[in-house]
Design a protein around this nucleic acid. Structure first.
Length: 646
RNA sequence: GCUGGCGUAGCUCAAUGGCAGAGCAGCUGAUUUGUAAUCAGCAGGUUGGGGGUUCAACUCCCUUCGCCAGCUCCA
């Protein structure tokens, strides 16, 4: 029986009858009068164009301009419009793919000459022209074979390559003006919806992300529904640039790099080294109070050992080797080997387990030159690394214990984070059963903790699956810091055993984990997170003493000595500059407190503290100020670090 | 590693084949100042390194080191 009516379920749950073949636009218009802001809709959950005709009973939910889903569609359409502009200016350009991404969109092109900044301006101008033309996005469905023929004739070899891998008999085109693209859609109704956009930069990108393939030219851009949102985003980018840890690292004199020393090697200046020292001693205490043992292993280990662990076969290209007395040695890229050798240094009982070996281990990895990035990607870095060796029964509790540790520490720094599970990669060692057990153990722990996560297939370490914790930095970039890796294979390879209650030898399980990750990367993330204004417990200089005139310098130095005695990290500005000048300087250095001393203070034997946010505290004795700093250190470090405990 | 861009004083940047410069920072002097820049003077360079073209190179070419954006890869 074929009725001419269809029943549409609306987003509010109500049902309404429409003639068969009604368009989504008609349905939405009839149900939500006055709302012209629809740009697409979800038909039974799938995003479709407003021009889609509905042929049967269905549920429909409009996608309104301004929603996140609409933004993705707008940006995807912007990519098409950009491709149209590029094709009109550079007819010989071949188009590859052009999706919406997190903060915008891109499109990849195969062109003889790479795009320049000037080209971006021309393309942008052309896009504005196309937008002004309010060209409709027209969808049509074609036979896949016909599509292959069409794109072959037009020379679009990348589209042909994509089409040849598709299995659907039909595919869809989207056409606006004279530009036709292979696309699933949906799109904005017409190009006029593109009102606020900007092409941001151009860079090379491999076809299909594979470095063996041709290098294409990728143009990145972003788009919003209104100019205000675009400007807000551009301001955000500018603000984020001010927080760049490389810039702040230089301005605050924390660290530097030197071409004379080599790429990817950090030099810590006194203030940067002090922050790192504070972090490291904080970590040592946190580990000791959780039952970890601090251990120290060597930097060079015989290549023979790296062969046994599988690093030589699976990680060699990232390692440095050297020869000593005819013996080949490898510089450690990870700390696990010596920890296992320590485990094996004597017979272990089940009563000894779990054993938790912690090391601030400095490792070297030969990262490709192009990936180096400030403190975030370096070639020598120090991990807050630990290896937990336990019985299979203890595994779940140990993983949960590590997760608690991670959450505790992230809470102190105030980071938000995301968790991921990474599974077996192609290049890996161990049996499928062990991988399965290990992966399940990690998932179970996260589930029991009620922590959401998503799975990254094939992203695990070569010896085991892992939970990765990604911190979000000022640019909304995700940085992998903490990681927890479950490993059944290394204990096997190194024949780690313990004596069970039955008197027999048993195989323990090993967990590799870091909390901050690398001290280098974590410091970089911290700098951007705090925009260089470290909380008092981390600030390398907690207070700068500034005098009104040189006449108070003697008293200033006396105060400095007294505060130093009490563990306050204090400096005196000895320059005979005006007070405002010295305040400005301390402010730019983001020092938490400026202690102003004039004749009034000398007479009172006191100081006038001013916070870096500009608030003025009342006159107080140096001792009282030390108490205040102590209190603030403890508060901001959740009771872990006070004065004098570094 | 790949594609593109870049490398000038401690920092930020000028100088398009013809005398290497400015501001800030530094130093010296004057000033002795009350909450984000006092004034003056001085000094600061093998223009990342090496090679080449040229009468002449910061400038053009080659090479190497390093940096930046992205791709690929990772803490």
């Amino acid at each position: 029986m074929q009725s001419n009516d269809i029943e549409i379920t609306l987003s509010d749950g109500g049902k309404k009858i429409f003639p068969r073949g009604a368009t989504v636009r008609e349905i939405l218009a009839a149900t939500a009068p006055g709302k012209n802001g629809w740009i697409a809709a979800k038909l039974d959950g799938n995003a479709v164009d407003l021009t889609k005709t509905v042929e049967g009973n269905a549920s429909i939910e409009g996608i309104a301009a301004g929603s996140n889903e609409a933004l993705v569609i707008l940006r995807h359409s912007a990519a098409h419009i950009m491709a149209q502009a590029v094709k009109s200016i550079f007819p010989e350009a071949r188009v590859a793919i052009g999706p919406a991404i997190e903060n915008g969109f891109y499109y990849d092109f195969d062109v003889a000459r790479p795009f320049t900044e000037d080209d971006l301006g021309r393309i942008e101008a052309k896009m504005k022209e196309i937008a002004a033309g309010k060209l409709p996005f027209e969808r049509s469905e074609v036979d896949r074979k016909d599509a292959i023929r069409y794109f072959s004739e037009t020379g679009e070899k990348y589209k042909v390559e994509l089409l040849e891998e598709f299995t659907d008999p039909t595919v869809s085109y989207y056409k606006q003006g004279d530009f036709t693209d292979l696309c699933r859609g949906p799109h904005i109704p017409h190009t006029g919806y593109l009102k606020a956009f900007k092409l941001t930069h151009v860079a090379g990108a491999y076809w299909r992300g594979d470095e063996r393939n041709a290098m294409l030219q990728r143009i990145y851009g972003t788009a919003f529904f209104d100019v205000e949102a675009l400007e807000k985003y551009l301001d955000f980018l500018e603000e984020a640039q001010k927080r760049d840890h490389r810039k702040l690292g230089r301005e605050l004199d924390l660290f530097s790099f030197s071409d004379e020393i080599g790429a990817g090697m950090v030099i810590y200046h006194p203030k940067g080294a002090l922050i790192r020292h504070i972090l490291e001693s904080f970590e040592k205490r946190e580990h000791l109070r959780r039952g970890y043992h601090i251990v120290v292993g060597p930097t060079l280990l015989k290549t023979e050992l790296w062969k046994r662990s599988g690093h030589f076969d699976n990680y060699r290209e990232n390692m440095y080797f050297s020869e000593i007395d005819g013996q080949s040695y490898g510089i450690k890229p990870m700390n696990c080997l010596s920890h296992m050798i320590i485990y094996k240094s004597k017979i272990r009982s089940y009563r000894d387990l779990p054993l938790r070996f912690f090391e601030l281990g400095t490792v070297h990895r030969h990262e490709k030159s192009g990936v180096l990035h400030g403190l975030m990607r370096v070639r020598q870095f120090t991990q807050d690394d630990a290896h937990l060796i336990c019985t299979p029964d203890q595994l779940n509790d140990e993983i949960k214990g590590i997760i608690d540790f991670v959450l505790d520490v992230m809470g102190i720094f105030g980071f938000s984070y995301e968790m991921e599970i990474s599974t077996r990669p192609e290049k890996s060692i161990g049996s499928d059963e062990d991988w399965d057990r290990a992966t399940k153990a990690l998932i179970k722990a996260l589930e029991e903790k009620g922590i959401p996560f998503h799975v990254c297939e094939g992203d695990g370490a070569f010896y085991g699956p892992k939970i990765d914790v990604k911190l979000l930095d000022a640019l909304d970039r995700r940085w992998q810091c903490a990681t927890i890796q479950c490993d059944f294979t290394m204990p096997e390879r190194f024949d780690l055993t313990y004596i069970g209650p039955d008197g027999g030898r048993h195989r323990p399980v090993m967990l590799h984990r870091v909390i901050l990750g690398s001290m280098e990367r974590f410091l970089g993330v911290l700098i951007e997170h705090y925009a260089g204004a470290f909380p008092v417990w981390l600030a390398p200089v907690q207070a700068e003493i500034v005098t009104v005139t040189d006449a108070q310098l003697e008293f200033a130095q006396q105060v400095a000595r007294e505060l130093q005695e009490r563990g306050v990290r204090v400096e005196v500005d000895l320059r005979s500059e005006k007070l405002g000048y010295k305040i400005r300087d301390a402010q730019k250095q983001k020092i938490p407190y400026m202690l102003v001393i004039g004749d009034k203070e000398v007479t009172a034997g006191a100081i006038a503290p001013r916070r870096r946010d500009g608030t003025q505290l009342s006159l107080m004795a140096p001792q009282k100020f030390a108490d205040l700093v102590q209190k603030e250190c403890l508060e901001s470090s959740k009771g872990r670090v006070g004065l004098g405990t570094i």
